Simulated scan of single mutants.
Amino acid sequence: MDNLFEKIIFYFQFPFVQYAFIVGILIALCSSLLGVTLVLKRFSFIGDGLSHVAFGALAVSGVLRLTNDMLVVLPVTILSAVLLLSTGKNAKIKGDAAIAMISVGALAIGYLLMNIFSTSSNLSGDVCSTLFGSTSILSLSKAEVWLCIILSIVVLLVYILFYNKIFSVTFDENFARATGIKAGAYNLLIAVIIAVIIVLAMNLVGSLLISALVIFPALSSMRVFKSFRSVTVCSACLSVTCASLGILVSILAGTPVGSTIVAVDIFAFIVFYFIGLIKKVGI
């Protein structure tokens, strides 16, 4: 046990490990807050759709050989979130169909562009790293860390300032509209925040695993708690804990960061599921 703590202390002396923990904790915290709303609104798969859009945008930025991927990825993902919300309300194209259409289309076009305009000798490795996450979280620059910190602070402030409105829109849009709340505008705000979180999370868990980071903490918390605030607080604490443990295990065991974090989230869900069962039967 002493050797394990010494090993952890040794690794934490390196800036890239400190950066990984800072970014991982911030992304996990932001993801968990909106995850509760998405689950309750039955719009969980918006994370999948937007993550695939981000993958396609990343492929375009690679083709254009831009030094800063965010210049393309962030605006495109936010725009797609807006289009996804408006298209999902169209009677001819329902929300789930719109998500599937955008998701599959962006993923296919992104992979096609990466093949046609490949600038790397290890295309399979680049694609796998982008989809499932790899060591990119351990090679963050100080500028990327600060960008993540700034965007995370913006997301947290927006969520705190508009908490009551988001709560109202989450549970009953019609009632919210009747009380004078612009439900459409707040739905749009939620979609834009999720888009920002998706872009931030790509380096952490990869585009295919982002939904797990958003959904699992919320689902786990709902097994035990019932009120919106309790579920949100528990989801945030659980998400940060799972992300920290996942990053720590991946560094010590040499496993992929994204997959390890998701595995910890799954284990936490199983634990909370049984806690919920025990609480339900009153043992």
Results as ranks from 00 to 15, higher is better:
106 A>C: 10
150 I>V: 04
152 S>K: 02
95 G>W: 12
88 G>N: 09
75 P>D: 02
180 G>F: 05
106 A>E: 10
104 V>T: 08
71 L>T: 08
89 K>P: 08
177 R>S: 12
158 V>A: 13
184 G>P: 09
187 N>V: 00
153 I>L: 05
184 G>Y: 08
175 F>A: 10
164 N>W: 02
136 S>C: 10
165 K>C: 06
134 S>A: 05
119 T>W: 14
197 I>H: 14
173 E>A: 01
160 I>G: 09
178 A>K: 07
156 L>E: 07
76 V>A: 05
163 Y>H: 12
159 Y>N: 07
145 V>A: 05
137 I>Y: 01
131 L>K: 00
192 V>R: 01
181 I>E: 06
189 L>D: 02
95 G>L: 12
173 E>D: 07
170 T>F: 04
104 V>W: 10
122 N>K: 13
185 A>S: 11
138 L>H: 00
183 A>Y: 10
72 V>E: 01
149 I>R: 05
162 F>G: 03
118 S>H: 08
141 S>T: 14
86 S>Y: 11
148 C>G: 05
140 L>Q: 14
103 S>H: 15
173 E>Y: 13
86 S>A: 05
69 D>H: 15
171 F>T: 06
156 L>P: 13
163 Y>D: 00
73 V>G: 06
161 L>P: 15
187 N>F: 11
158 V>N: 13
196 V>R: 03
118 S>W: 03
77 T>W: 07
175 F>D: 09
94 K>N: 13
195 A>Y: 14
95 G>Y: 13
86 S>F: 15
81 A>H: 14
99 I>T: 08
157 L>R: 08
179 T>Q: 15
169 V>P: 00
72 V>R: 00
74 L>W: 00
145 V>N: 05
112 L>Q: 10
187 N>C: 03
191 A>S: 12
136 S>T: 09
169 V>R: 03
114 M>R: 00
101 M>R: 12
150 I>T: 01
197 I>T: 06
159 Y>P: 08
176 A>T: 14
124 S>L: 00
163 Y>N: 07
